[in-house]
Structure formats: structure tokens, C-alpha cells
Simulated assay, not measured.
Amino acid sequence: MITVLVFAHLKEKFGQPRLVLEEQELTVSQLRRVLAEQYDLQDNSVMIAVNEEFAEEDEVIRAGDTVALIPPVSGG
């Protein structure tokens, strides 16, 4: 299983602070597709971190990894 932590407005969108995916292994790109299909996440500006480091689209996520979805933030 892969744990996905969600922050800011995504927590409200999903109605929970974390998602648990049954997949054992997938790339960041594949994760984006799963989130789009299962959770209607269409925002490609969301950054994805794997085990507390920002990840590239081809990075492999494995069971036991912790993933964070970090929405874009703005400030002034």
C-alpha cells in the first residue's frame, strides 16, 4: 500500500488528510492518472513529494513509501 498525504484545499476536496492506495508500485506519472480517475484530481500544478523529497514524473513509488500532494501556494 502507498500512503498519500494531502494538504491545504486538497484535504477539503478529498474529505480526509490521507489516502491509502492498494497499488504496490507505480510512477509519479501513473499516480497522477490514478488520482485523476479515482479522485477527480485534474490539477497538474500539484507538486508530489516521495519520502519528503520532490519527485520527478518517472520516479517509482513503492509500497511503504509516503507521498505528499502539495498544492501551489501564493503569498505576498
Rank of each mutant, 00 (worst) to 15 (best):
Q38P: 01
T3W: 01
E25A: 14
E22L: 09
Q42T: 10
Q16I: 12
I2N: 10
I70K: 00
D43K: 04
V6K: 06
Q38R: 15
E12L: 12
V4E: 09
E53H: 14
H9N: 15
M1L: 14
V34I: 14
V60H: 07
V6L: 14
L21W: 01
V34R: 12
G15L: 10
I70N: 00
L21D: 10
R18P: 00
I48S: 08
D43V: 03
Q30W: 00
R32P: 01
A49D: 05
L41P: 10
Y39V: 08
L10C: 08
P72H: 03
V20A: 12
A63M: 09
T66C: 10
Q24W: 08
R32T: 01
I70V: 10
D40V: 02
E37M: 05
G64M: 13
Q16N: 08
G64C: 10
V50L: 11
L31E: 05
K13A: 14
A63T: 13
N51V: 07
M1I: 15
L10G: 09
K13G: 07
E59G: 00
N51I: 10
V46G: 11
L10R: 04
L31W: 02
K11D: 06
L69F: 08
I61P: 03
I61S: 03
L69Y: 09
V4C: 13
V34Q: 12
A68S: 14
A63G: 13
K13T: 13
E56K: 15
E22I: 00
M47A: 14
T27W: 03
Q38A: 11
D58A: 12
Y39C: 08
G15N: 06
E57R: 07
R33P: 00
Q16D: 04
E52H: 13
N51M: 09
A55P: 10
E59N: 11
A49K: 04
G75P: 03
N51S: 06
A36S: 12
A55T: 02
A55Q: 01
V4M: 11
A36W: 01
Q16A: 14
P72T: 07
N51L: 07
R32V: 01
E53T: 12
A68M: 04
S74E: 07
L31I: 05
Q24M: 11
L41Q: 04
L19Q: 09
N44M: 11
S45Q: 13
I48T: 00
M1K: 11
E22T: 13
Q42P: 00
V28R: 03
V20N: 11
L26F: 13
T66M: 10
V34Y: 05
V6G: 09
A63S: 13
P71G: 00
M47L: 14
V34T: 13
L31A: 04
L21M: 08
F54Y: 14
G15K: 02
N44I: 01
V34E: 06
F7T: 07
V50R: 10
V46A: 04
D58F: 01
V50F: 06
E56M: 05
L19P: 03
E37C: 08
E52P: 06
R18K: 15
E52Y: 12
A8M: 13
